[in-house]
Design a protein around this nucleic acid. Structure first.
Length: 837
DNA sequence: CTTAGCGGCCTTTTT
DNA sequence: GGCCGCTAAG
């Protein structure tokens, strides 16, 4: 049911608020709805903020307003976000608003960071010691493996990962081992699922550790079991604000309800306003942008807000300040196909702007090519590369774009690859630091005990673990005891002893030297740096760089301890990633961002909507996929470019694809069909042309029939011939090597190489250079022959490339090089992307 | 203890 | 087609 439109602010509240307004410049420039959202301070408020309607501004202004009106001090406001990034942004903006640092808001943070804060204060009540450690996903898996071992579960059939997923899911729903539904608990390891979960929790307690899920589950338990503690927080938090409410999962929801209402169920049938606990809770979100159902988010939370908080004020922000008319209309039309939504109608006063374009192409290579060409064109027209993004459904799609951009010399950055703290070398490094800081951190100890390899293998580790279990002591102590005894072979014994001695030695230096120097010392003396230096693989270099980056980052902290506390929670680093670059990322990663021009490739059935979402979640899954389409479109300020391929390469082989149903859901009036200008566009062109001008003659414009028939056209056949020639042609064969998805290259190239090395205006375009020089046109080659400047490299030079590693130059053409990479095969690259190897 | 080779998996991802 | 994780051989 769609809640009634918001009633205007009433009585004394508005009067009071208005009185303030005169002296509150921050309220100026807000539209009426935004202002209402800022000024409705009493009771529960749900702000439905459509894409680009000024959500963050409302949230931050509201906080500023609460403080400015003296209703509460910063320390009495609880403001939760999902990501550290969002928390940072909010802090920053409130700071700008209030003028000054936001030291006064200790309770602004992520659900998890606030959860830790609360748990640390009452650790004993939660059955923990105050210095408990927080396990990351890696530690979690490690621990689960041990649990599976002890229970002698076949790890082949029942991987620890899967159990981790299940436990995560249970924790997301706030279920402790005894609360897990029997059927579900039985679904793992022949009915042992529940037991294993219980065992895992027991081990966590023994280790004085919690995982991410526990930060909330344990908090909820604390609140339930200790009403006095809950009451304390309830009186402390006069105002509660929640960002991205549509993304909350069940524990977060319970957590909030306990804090806001003091109980988990709303008063049924009671007059809402009479509840003098008066939860001043304000949730901001957009049901249409709920795209995290698969990791436990419950859209229902936002859909039933007014049932949880009877009498809640619902305010809709529908005035969009981001996108031009056609884009907004297209997005709205698509999202309107969804059933379960609260319903909003976004509008804009701005210009209609350009229509959303739809282009069908032959395959992913051509798709990347037309996108690259268009970006080239836009850049020449003065478009900022930072204002361009390519948003895709799945990360494997990025490959084609990266390849193409490298060929073009187009600077790009990838967001959402493996993040900094997820890289193996960083985890190793942090594990060392953690062990030095706290030698009883068993999982970290286990991680580094044989990295770099020092002859302490699985058997030894297992014996240490067994010993530590038997005596209920930490691994490091167990190891020390075993070194004293004659348990181990002399070699192992010595090696282990050296390690333990080193740890002690480093530990004794904590107080005496700068933590950054200590870190360097540790990486050096442990042999870790030496290991990377000895590593000839192409990634080793950037790994060393990452370590340096880590040490640089440590400078921001005063102590080792401070640094470690930070990283256990914040798996994120703000690295200077500046410079003009095109952004490549997934649709998920794009939520909350905006760009002038947005490319949306891969709109094909099976990929988007993703087949798996459909199979596993049916209509619900489809609607979430549709919301993803909505999120994608609404990222665009001025230009949105949708494309789909007719042939998608999956698992190495080509499969013909059908355009996404979402393409058909775009409203005719706001869309323009564009022909691909490449040589492979025959099929689509025939469709667009054959279907009548515009191609919108009712029914599906892109359905299978149309495509089937187009397969007979000359264009298609030509294209097919082409692709066959290409497939076997030189320079194409290299496709598919060495991408090493996520090998620390996630940032694209490091600074230094500049896109400007690639002279604009020198590019000759398809297809004018036809068969004159080569019978087959191989992409990249035309470009390769067209640049004037001579390269500093010559045939036979050995070079190093950030992404492809080492190789030898086999051909030089202007500033384009053909290089035979040792690992990656033959690639064409721009010389500015390589250095002498 | 290390390394090579084989088999299974393959959407999205924060804390 | 490629990567990760595990197992079995050296």
């Amino acid at each position: 049911m769609v809640p009634a439109p918001p009633a205007p602010a009433r009585g004394p509240i508005s009067a009071r608020a208005r009185a303030v307004t005169a002296a509150a410049p921050y309220l100026e420039g807000l539209n009426p709805e935004q202002r209402l959202a800022v000024e409705t301070l009493d009771g529960a408020v749900l702000v439905l903020a459509g894409a680009g309607t000024g959500k963050t501004r409302v949230l931050t202004t509201r906080i500023g307003h609460i403080m400015a009106t003296g209703r509460a001090r910063g320390s009495q406001i609880l403001a939760v976000t999902f990501t550290n990034k969002a928390a940072r942004e909010m802090k920053h903006r409130i700071g700008a608003l209030v003028g000054g640092e936001v030291e006064g808001m200790p309770w602004l943070g992520t659900f998890h960071s606030i959860g830790v804060k609360i748990l640390r204060r009452h650790a004993e009540l939660a059955g923990l010691k105050s210095g408990f450690t927080i396990l990351d996903t890696d530690d979690q898996i490690r621990l689960l493996k041990q649990v599976l071992d002890v229970a002698s579960v076949d790890k082949e059939r029942w991987p620890a990962r899967q159990l981790a997923g299940l436990i995560d899911g249970w924790k997301n729903r706030g279920q402790t081992p005894d609360m897990v539904p029997k059927g579900e608990a039985a679904s793992f390891a022949d009915g042992k699922g529940g037991q294993l979960y219980a065992e895992y929790q027991k081990r966590l307690k023994e280790l004085n550790a919690v995982d991410f899920g526990d930060l909330l589950v344990e908090c909820v338990r604390l609140f339930r079991e200790h009403p006095d503690v809950l009451a304390d927080y309830r009186s402390r938090f006069r105002y509660i604000l929640v960002d991205e409410y549509q993304d909350t999962n069940t524990v977060q929801y319970l957590w909030l309800k306990l804090l806001a209402l003091g109980r988990e169920t709303p008063l049924v049938g009671k007059a809402a306003g009479s509840d003098n606990a008066s939860p001043n809770v304000c949730c901001v979100g957009d049901d249409d942008q709920s795209i995290y159902g698969w990791r436990g988010a419950e859209v229902d939370n936002i859909l039933r807000f007014d049932k949880d908080f009877p009498g809640a004020t619902v305010i809709r922000l529908e005035r969009n300040y981001r996108s031009t008319g056609h884009i907004l209309a297209a997005a709205s039309h698509v999202i309107a196909m969804n059933q379960g939504r609260l319903g909003k109608t976004l509008f804009t006063d701005g210009v209609k702007g350009e229509k959303v374009t739809v282009t069908g192409v032959w395959d992913d290579t051509e798709e990347a090519r037309i996108v690259g060409d268009e970006i080239e064109r836009l850049r020449k027209g003065g478009h900022k590369l930072n204002e361009i993004a390519v948003l895709m459904r799945a990360s494997f799609q990025m490959r084609a774009f990266e390849d193409r951009f490298i060929t073009l010399g187009m600077p790009y950055r990838v967001i959402g690859g493996p993040r900094f703290y997820e890289r193996a070398e960083i985890k190793d490094a942090i594990a060392y630091l953690e062990v030095v800081h706290n030698p009883t951190h068993d999982l970290k100890f286990e991680r580094i005990v044989n990295v770099p390899k020092r002859g302490i293998g699985d058997t030894t580790v297992h014996r240490i673990i067994a010993h530590s279990r038997a005596r209920a002591i930490p691994l490091a102590i167990a190891a020390a005891e075993m070194v004293q005894a004659d348990e181990l072979s002399p070699k192992t014994r010595r090696s282990l002893n050296d390690l333990l001695a080193s740890i002690e030695r480093w530990r004794s230096r904590i107080a005496g030297m700068r933590h950054t120097d200590l870190a360097e010392m540790i990486f050096d003396e442990s042999g870790y740096t030496a290991m990377l230096q000895a590593d000839k693989s192409p990634q080793a270099q950037s790994r060393l760089e990452n370590l340096k980056e880590l040490v640089r980052f440590m400078h921001d902290f005063d102590t080792l301890e401070g640094f470690l506390e930070h990283v256990s929670l914040v798996m994120d680093i703000d690295s200077g990633n500046d410079g003009e670059r095109v952004t490549l990322m997934t649709l998920h990663a794009a939520k909350g961002l905006e760009f002038d021009t947005v490319f949306l490739p891969g709109w094909e059935e099976g990929l988007f909507p993703h087949q798996r979402a459909l199979d596993e979640s049916g209509l619900k899954g489809l609607e979430e996929e549709r919301r993803l389409a909505y999120v994608g479109l609404t990222r665009a300020k001025k230009r949105a470019r949708v494309s789909f391929t007719e042939n998608r390469r999956t698992r190495g082989l080509f499969q013909s694809a059908t355009p996404s149903r979402f393409v058909d859901e775009l409203p005719e009036a706001d869309v323009e069909v564009i022909e691909a200008k490449g040589p492979f566009s025959g099929a689509y062109r025939s469709l667009g042309g054959g279907g009548g001008a515009g191609g919108y003659g009712g029914g599906s414009r892109f359905d299978n029939e149309a495509f089937k028939s187009s397969y007979q056209t000359p264009g298609w056949q030509r294209a097919q011939q082409h692709s066959q020639q290409q497939g076997s042609g030189p320079g194409q064969g290299g496709h598919g090597h060495a991408h090493g998805a996520g090998q620390g290259q996630a940032q694209g190239r490091p600074g230094g190489t500049s896109g400007s090395a690639y002279g604009a205006g020198q590019t000759k375009r398809w297809p004018d250079k036809g068969g004159a020089r080569t019978p087959r046109l191989i992409e990249g080659q035309v470009l390769a022959s067209s640049t004037g400047s001579a390269s500093e490299f010559k045939r036979g030079d050995r070079v190093f490339h950030e992404k492809f590693g080492y190789g030898a130059v086999s051909e030089v053409d202007g500033n384009k090089l053909t290089v035979d990479f040792e690992k990656a095969g033959q690639k064409k690259v721009v010389d500015s992307f390589v250095e002498r190897g």
